[in-house]
């Protein structure tokens, strides 16, 4: 077994275990931290395959930005950060069966199609990728930048607090679990107090 194969197997095992922990961990913050390990393992696989710039972009974009964004999302949506109930209305057996079927099908396909294929490893320095990216792929690259800008503007517009939208009222201490126990129908949705418009403020002053 060559050195790249050993490194690939090690990162694969670590990454696979971390990915399993992401979806099975009962604490959501732990899931986000295991996601860091899984994505770092993916970056390691890129390094072994010789895609150096893609590996560092993976570390910067995913580990540096996306996971921090996910943790901020968990923080800003307060509950339930602690242990959460497992499973949704699909249960656990059906997702497990689907995932195992997908994995078995993919592995069978890979082994029959690429069983004897050998990769001649070749290191591509970031400069070589940059020369291709800014010449042959210049137009798609700029389009991608435009799309990212649009997505960021869209995210700000979606998450912005609208007029009349305020913080939710404190939960009623008499029935703290009512909203969690049964999915609410429209009559039991939390009612928000509209913020006073400037006109109303002037009148009350």
């Amino acid at each position: 077994m060559s050195v790249p194969e050993v490194v690939m197997l090690a990162t694969g095992v670590v990454g696979g275990a971390a990915a399993l922990l992401v979806v099975t961990s009962r604490n959501v913050v732990h899931s986000a931290l295991y996601l860091v390990v899984a994505l770092l393992a993916v970056a390691g696989v890129f390094l072994v395959l010789g895609a150096e710039f893609v590996a560092w972009a993976q570390v910067l974009v995913y580990v540096g930005a996306v996971v921090v964004l996910l943790l901020f999302g968990l923080m800003l949506t307060r509950a339930p950060i602690g242990p959460t109930g497992q499973g949704n209305e699909l249960g656990k057996a059906m997702p497990l069966a689907v995932a195992l079927a997908v994995f078995a099908g993919l592995v069978a396909l890979i082994v029959t199609s690429y069983g004897g294929e050998v990769i001649a490893l070749e290191h591509v320095p970031p400069a070589a990728l940059g020369e291709v990216l800014y010449v042959a792929w210049a137009l798609p690259f700029m389009t991608l930048g435009f799309l990212l800008t649009l997505a960021l503007i869209g995210a700000v517009v979606i998450a912005r607090r609208e007029e009349g939208e305020g913080p939710l009222p404190e939960p009623d201490p008499d029935e703290p679990e009512a909203a969690e126990a049964s999915p609410p129908d429209s009559s039991s949705w939390p009612q928000r107090q509209p913020e006073p418009t400037p006109d109303e403020r002037e009148v009350s002053a």
Binding site: M8, G12, L96, F103, I110, V111, Y114, V118, I119
Partner: peptide, 29 residues
């Protein structure tokens, strides 16, 4: 290096993602 190692790693990641997508109900998860 044999091509099956990274391909099977990718298949594993994808299947685990499918399982998490179908089984968890926390939206961030």
């Amino acid at each position: 290096m044999a091509a099956v190692y990274p391909l099977i790693f990718a298949a594993l990641l994808f299947s685990v993602g499918v399982y998490g997508l179908l089984s968890r109900r926390h939206a961030v998860l």
